[in-house]
Each structure stands twice: as structure tokens, then as C-alpha cells.
Design a protein around this nucleic acid. Structure first.
Lengths: 212, 212
DNA sequence: CAGGTTCTGCTATCACCATTAGGACTTTCG
DNA sequence: CGAAAGTCCTAATGGTGATAGCAGAACCTG
């Protein structure tokens, strides 16, 4: 049963590797010249084809963006350092924000594609978008597990994280000017949790946590 | 001397009003269909011209973007509520963040043009950029006047502001989900100033301030 | 191996885009 | 009036994403 259709397998194997090669070229161009500078002509030249031939592998240019989005979302899921979480509020917040900002800053093109809706006609397909949303959801879940249940606090936390990432990318690309502020920011946020009126934070909740 | 050249004045008057009409159309399109969806053809149709005729008024499409940037930067300068500043730290921070986030949220297309560098080949001209930079600079100056002199604190503050604006625009356009968090965020930041190690904040410094 | 089917690349073409060239017409000025 | 400047147009260029249709290779079945 396993060796049933080796030929068709070989065929689709080559097909997949060609798609991967196209996406690789697209990423290279996006990183080098900007996400919006990706053109079918440039991709085609990079993979040794003519522009129309790319339509054998993707239905449209936006389908390429969508596949890139899916890859980015996948990497986003895989990146999250669930292993390093201990259940200690400040430590875990720091780990999550460091992971998030680092993820964003290490590839601005990917950040732009995933988190800024800036490509003219592009919107991610529901399934790709769901992957990325689920990943953010897991952060929220862990926040709640740490005792941060107030929706307002969660929103404030996300604003803090995206603000740090955004400033880092916009005003100090390649540097660490805002990355160095993460621990300060986390401390500030944690203090706010313990002192705020509608407060709901366990300074150090139950140790040990099961990820996922 | 004043009534020296009425004809040339009338001519340049009509010219300026035509430019204004073009920019108005461009803003309308940008707000309705997105900043990147602005095309010369659509602008021309809106003002009753053919696309090439626009080149009588602007050197290129990017020149139109640049004029829009300049307008936005001008509005940004004018928006800032220096009058409402009292010198009280928490109050002034709240006023400034409210003004900033409100300004960003009230016109996402303008926000994208001014603060996100997302248009493929566009970069604002130095003079337009200087206007917007100066405006941010004035915020920093007032922060320092309030006793916030640590560069790290200033960076943290800008991250907080942009994060709130970004989340508001991205995840609740037209709403106030993050706007409602501003006072909380400001309080959090102010507390952080007074408690942090390298702290440098006067809880309530000298009343009264001279703007500009 | 012969037949047909599928896959994969191509050329040619279309519509749209920003931009340039150059001509026609109007307005303004001497 | 006649020259100059300004305004708008049509026509055309080179670029984009996308479609149609064809040629040949790869593949599966007899």
C-alpha cells in the first residue's frame, strides 16, 4: 500500500519543491527590496522561468503572498517558547515579549506581511489567518494562566508588545534600542497588574505548567 | 506694491486651488480604498482630467504622496494640544497620548502615510519629514519638561503610544477599545517612572508651562 | 512500443499603471 | 496684434498582473 504510486509521488514531489523554490525566491526579494517590490517577473527570473509559468504553481500573485503568510504564521507558531515558561508572571511575560519582538525584528518583511495589512489587494486566506490568530490566542491563554484575566490588561499587554516591536523595526532596524527596554516594560506592566484597581494578578502562581 | 501683479496672482490662485482639488480627491480615494489604491487615473477622473494632465501640477505620483505627507504633518503639528498641558505629569501624558492616538485613529490612511513606511517607492521629502519629526520632538521636549529625561523612559513612552494607536487601528477601527486604555496606560507608565531604579520623575513639577 | 492524457513551459495578448513627447488651444503680457 | 506662458489633450513607452492557447515532455495504459 505504501509503494502504490511512486510516480505520482515523484511528480508531486517535484511540484512541491518547485513551489518551495518560488517562495524562497519571493522571500529573498521581499527581504532585499521590500515586500511590495516583489514582482512575478523578478521571481520568474530568479527561478529560471517566464512570468506566466508561475501560474502553474500559484493561482495569482496574492496566492504567493498567502503562501508566504502561511509560512510566516507557521514559523510564528513554532517560535513561541512554551518550553521556557515557568508560570512565574514576570519571567513568562519577559520570555513572551522577547520572543515576539525578536520574531518581528528578525524579519521585517515577514512582520509587515503578518501583522500589518499593507499589501494593496491582499488578505490572508481564513485558514492561514486562523493559524496566526491561534498563536496569539495561545499567548492570551498563557496570560490568563498567569492570572491576567482582565481583558483590558490583556489588550494593554498586546499594545505594549506591538509598540515595542513597531518602534524597534521602524526606528532602529537591526539594533536593539527597544529590545533592551523589554524587561523594563514587563516590570512596569507587572507592577500595574498588582496595583491597579480591577487588579487580578497572582504575583507567583502555581509553578509548573502544561503547554498547549 | 501690493496691487502690482493681480493677473499673475489670479493665475497662481487657480493653480493652487487645482492642486488642492487634486489632493482632496487623492485623500478621498485613499480613505475609501486604501492608500496604495490611489492611482492617477482615478484622481484624474475625480477632478475631470486625463491622467497626464496631473503632471502640470505634480512632478510624479510620489510628489502627490509627498504633498499629502506634508499636509498630514501640518495637521499633526496643529493637532497637538499644547494649550491643554498643565505641567502635571499624569495629566499631560494623558493629554498627549489621547491626542496622538486620536489623531492616528481618526484617519488610518493618514496614519499609514505618516508613520508607516509602506508605499513602495515613496519617501517623504526632507522638509516634509522635518515637520513631522519636529512635532514628535516637541512631545519629547515636553516630556523632559515634565521631568522625564531618561532616554529609555522616553523610548518606552513612544512605544506605548504607538502600540496603542497601532492596535486601535488594526484591531478595532472606528471603535475605542484601546483608546479606553490610555489613562490606564499612562498611570502605569507614571508609576513606573516614580518607582524605577534609574528613576527621574517629579510627581508634580512646577505648574504652568510655556508652549513651543 | 503506440495511444491518449496530464503536466509544464512557452509566446502572444490584454488591461491597467506611471510617465513622456508633442501638438492644439486659451490666457496673459508687451 | 503677436509672442510667451500655461493648460489640457492624444499618442506612445515600458512596466505590471493575468489569460489564452499551443508545443513538447512526462506519464500511464493498452
Amino acid at each position: 500500500m505504501v509503494i502504490a504510486e511512486p510516480v505520482r509521488d515523484r511528480r508531486s514531489e517535484r511540484r512541491e519543491s518547485a513551489k518551495a523554490e518560488i517562495l524562497e525566491a519571493a522571500w529573498r526579494i521581499a527581504r532585499a527590496e521590500g515586500l511590495a517590490a516583489v514582482s512575478l517577473g523578478e521571481i520568474a527570473r530568479a527561478v529560471g522561468m517566464r512570468p506566466p509559468s508561475l501560474y502553474n504553481y500559484f493561482d495569482s500573485k496574492n496566492a504567493i503572498y498567502d503562501a508566504m503568510f502561511a509560512q510566516g504564521a507557521e514559523e510564528f507558531v513554532r517560535m513561541e517558547p512554551w518550553d521556557e515558561l515557568t508560570g512565574d508572571l514576570v519571567h513568562d511575560l519577559s520570555v513572551m515579549v522577547h520572543a515576539f519582538v525578536g520574531f518581528c525584528a528578525e524579519d521585517p518583511a515577514r512582520y509587515q506581511l503578518l501583522f500589518q495589512r499593507t499589501i494593496p489587494g491582499f488578505e490572508p486566506s481564513p485558514e492561514s489567518y486562523a493559524v496566526s490568530e491561534a498563536s496569539l490566542g495561545r499567548i492570551v491563554v498563557h496570560l490568563e494562566r498567569c492570572g491576567v484575566t482582565d481583558p483590558r490588561s490583556i489588550d494593554l499587554f498586546t499594545a505594549l508588545g506591538t509598540g515595542l516591536a513597531d518602534q524597534q523595526i521602524s526606528n532602529d532596524p537591526g539594533g536593539d534600542r527597544w529590545i533592551r527596554l523589554i524587561d523594563d516594560a514587563v516590570e512596569m506592566f507587572a507592577n500595574h497588574l498588582t496595583t491597579s484597581t480591577g487588579g487580578n494578578a497572582r504575583p507567583t502562581p502555581a509553578k509548573g505548567n502544561r503547554a498547549t
